[in-house]
Structure formats: C-alpha cells, structure tokens
C-alpha cells in the first residue's frame, strides 16, 4: 500500500461571470512508504490545489485520492498525517503550548503523551523559550517552525508540507532540511511542495514537476543528477602542456593545468594523462543543474 495514492484527480473552479479555471487536470501520482517526494512547480501551477485536496480543504471535481489507504475527505484519513500549510497561521490568542495541546487533543493523545510530545517538538524546533508566549508575538520564522512542530506532534507516518522552507532564514532552512532528512531516516513519508530546486536536490528521493495543473514528469533525483552531468573539470600537475580532441586546456598558476573534458571523453583523457605521468589533483563533474532541468520542463509544459 502506498502512503499517498492520487488517481485521475481534477479540480475545476467556477469563477464569477461564468468562467472556468482548470486548477488540476487528471493528476495521477503515488508516493511510496518512506519516500521523500518533492512536488515542484511555478506559482499557481496546482501544487497547493493538490495538497488542499489531500487535506480535505477542497473536494475534487473528479478522481480519487487516498492517504494511508483512507480516502481523503474522511477526517480519519488525517489521523496519520502531519500537515504544514503554506504561510501557516495559528490561533494567535493562544500560546504555542496551548496550541500544541489543542492539536494533541484533536489527535486523541493522552495527557502524558501530549506532555512528552510537546516538549520534544518544541525542543527540536528551538521554540522552548517562546512556548508560553502568545503566538500573536511570533516572527514569521517562528510561526513556520511552530507549524512544523504541530505537524510532528503526533509522530505521524506521512508528512504533507506545503512550501516548508518559505519565510525561513538560512539557519531555519538548514534546520528544516535536517529535520526532513531525519524523518527519512525514521522511515517516514514526506510529500512537500516547493518552487526552489535546490531544496529538492538535497533532500528528495523523487521529484514531480507540475505546470498549469498538469503533472509533467516524475523522476528519481539521483537519476536526474546523473543524467545532468555534461562533462568534467580536471586539474593536473606535473605537465607543462596537454592537448586532446574536444578537451579545452587552460594554464593556472602554480604549474596547474585545468582541463574541461566532455563526459564521454573522460576515461580516454584520464588514460592519456596517466600515461604521461601527470598527477591528478581534482576531478569535478560539470552538470546541468536541476534548475535548468526544471526550467526546461516548465517551458515545455507551457507550450
């Protein structure tokens, strides 16, 4: 059983003046247990619509979706899910601790469980100092961290995070990335949306790209990364000169030669270098990064 199963999901909004907006068209997608899935797309592509459908905030026009084997729209399906909304807002008249206690009650946690879990997530997200202050006084980053805390409170199997990194400073982003990695290690499923490719590269197993309500591609991140390598940069010492077909050579200071080697010529070039007694000090892949991959997919999707 997959953690998340989306089958032929469509959502059409009626606008005023009799218009129609196809926010989501025939989306089919599965996220396996223990997988970290990145949902990538430009603003307004349908990421949030997908997530809000999963969380029961909107109902699909067609198609079905299940989480942990329970159809979405049924409140029970959210028992095993931790959700972080995009730009979250929480009852700001409550303190962080009061809010977490409220969330715990929604999940039917006992007072002991609540006590322990609250302390744990507050510590993990570095909110202990602010725990008994009203949320009204929180900074945007603190609210975002509280959002993660409330999503993790009941130690769910599945995490659905809508733009988890937005509004965070570099420290906060690092914290969130570490948390997602930890969750992966614990075997949790994480489904998160973002429009920042760098986030995907670091933490995701697979990535799906959605443009204009249609899912364009789904790829394993390690394959994308491998496929993205176009050539290598090689630095050697102990040679005064080198030439080879397709290889670009520059002389750096300190007796270093820098070669730009196309992907398919790497083995050949390395052999040649070896035979001439050069010492290789650095090999680095030159790759087309995820961002240009993403931009390509988006450009195709918009056609």
């Amino acid at each position: 059983m997959n953690a998340i199963d989306i089958r032929n999901l469509s959502k059409t909004y009626r606008t005023r003046k009799w218009g129609r907006v196809d926010a989501l068209q025939d989306l089919t997608l599965s996220v396996g247990k223990g997988e970290v899935f990145g949902f990538l797309g430009p603003n307004g592509a349908g990421k949030s619509t997908t997530i809000k459908t999963l969380m029961g905030l909107i109902s699909p026009s067609a198609g079905t979706a299940q989480m942990a084997g329970v159809p979405v729209g049924d409140a029970r399906c959210r028992m095993k899910v931790g959700y972080l909304p995009e730009n979250p807002a929480f009852y700001d008249f409550l303190t962080a601790r009061e809010y977490l206690r409220f969330v715990a009650a929604m999940f039917g946690m006992s007072p002991q469980e609540t006590q322990a879990a609250t302390g744990k997530v507050l510590g993990l997200l570095e909110l202990e100092g602010a725990a008994d202050r009203p949320i009204r006084g929180f900074s945007k980053g603190m609210v975002q961290r509280l959002g993660l805390a409330q999503a993790m409170l009941h130690d769910p199997e599945i995490y659905v995070l809508d733009e988890p990194m937005s509004g965070l400073d570099p420290l906060g982003r690092a914290l969130v990335k570490n948390i997602i990695r930890d969750l992966k290690q614990q075997g949790k499923t994480v489904f998160f949306s973002t429009h920042i490719t760098a986030d995907v590269e670091v933490v995701c197993d697979r990535v799906g790209v959605i443009v204009k309500g249609k899912l364009q591609t789904v790829n394993a991140v390690h394959e994308l990364l491998a496929a993205g390598v176009v050539g290598y940069q090689v630095q050697v010492t102990g040679l005064s000169d080198f030439s080879g077909e397709g290889v670009e050579v520059t002389v750096r200071g300190g007796g270093i030669l820098e070669l730009q080697v196309p992907r398919e010529l790497l083995s050949l070039t390395l052999e040649k270098l070896g035979s001439r007694g050069a010492e290789i000090t650095l090999i680095e892949p030159n790759r087309q990064d995820l961002e240009s991959f993403f931009l390509e997919v988006v450009a195709q999707g918009k056609k």
Partner: peptide
Amino acid sequence: ERRYLASVLTLPIS
C-alpha cells in the same frame, strides 16, 4: 480571514 482554517480543519476533526 486569518487563514486559521487551513491549519485547523486539516486536523482530524470533522
């Protein structure tokens, strides 16, 4: 108005 519903109605409460 304050976007509280997105965080509350997504809890397992009908």
